[in-house]
Design a protein around this nucleic acid. Structure first.
Lengths: 164, 164
DNA sequence: TCTACTGTACCGGCCAGACGGTATACAGAA
DNA sequence: TTCTGTATACCGTCTGGCCGGTACAGTAGA
């Protein structure tokens, strides 16, 4: 208990994301989230008064993570393209999980989630275009990244990966 | 009622897919599907004794559509690559809808749906590799197609599309 | 008469959310 | 330094509604 001093609030969001990713939105019920986060239902609802607030909180955290990622991408040793493609495939990071979780929410026609994801993609695209100086090429790189990401989140796994 | 003589069974599957795609799996309830298909709940359960059977029926139809698509791809005028990429972005076809619907189901960790999707992708890959004679290139083309597809199903829309 | 339904009535479980507690910490007053 | 008040961070139960599924009686057309 000394290390890993994660707040209840963060633990709840972690569990919400994990359930969304591993079991789908149907399974991500308040009870399930509370149980996974080792909080009572009442405790969960203290931090997030409704399920909708849980979504809002998750997306807010995603945006923070996204800004941090864009910064890392800009200053990556091997350059933004390599960074982008190598992190498009599943890395198992918290950011990854948040991304997939947001995608699940977006599918239930949630406007805010779709916007958050679109904004993230815009951010990456901006960095790629700045670096490459070519809009069409930047778009193609992004499509390949999307493809890698897609294959991975779908559990399809592209065997002959482009990266490495 | 003269034209569009679609069977009740097919109409139910259509509605199930449509609801999955446009509103997510949470919204695709038996009641909602029945209402959308203009069938009573009893009528729906006459054709599909359980929700699970609805999934099975949907995947069976998807596989049929998939085989037809691979055949069309092989004999496409402008070649398989053009056909593949131009149909990766949303075409609004029944096949498209079935594909996205299956992806929604797959996300709720449904093994059968994941398998059906993986088999479809294998089929496309085989055609691409046969035509191109290059495994790595075929894989890259498929990734770009996945990217286009991903962007589209996520409602992100790649503005400077490759297939314009 | 068989198929393909309609419509209604029901049930058990699950789910979001409401609500009434409880434990702890800290602050100011006496 | 003890008493009182208040805020924070929870716990656990309850309720009303929805969802999947059952049951069954009826019916129109081939």
């Amino acid at each position: 208990m000394a290390a890993a001093e994660r707040s209840t609030r963060d633990r709840v969001l972690d569990s919400f994301e994990t359930l969304l990713v591993t079991a789908g939105s149907r399974a991500a019920t308040l009870d399930a989230v509370a149980a996974d986060a080792n909080v009572s239902k009442g405790g969960l609802l203290y931090h997030f008064p409704s399920k909708d607030e849980l979504v809002v909180g998750m997306l807010a955290r995603l945006r923070e993570q996204g800004e941090a990622d864009a910064t890392k991408m800009r200053s990556a040793k091997k350059g933004p393209v390599d960074y982008y493609l190598s992190t498009s495939a599943h890395t198992g990071s918290d950011f990854d999980r948040a991304l997939v979780a947001a995608a699940r929410i977006a599918q239930e026609h949630d406007q805010r989630a779709s916007e958050a994801l679109a904004d993230l993609r815009d951010g990456w695209f901006t960095v790629l275009r700045e670096h490459l100086g070519d809009e069409a090429l930047a778009r193609t790189i992004q499509l390949i990244g999307d493809g890698l990401y897609f294959d991975d989140t779908m559990g399809l796994q592209a065997k002959g990966a482009l990266t490495h």
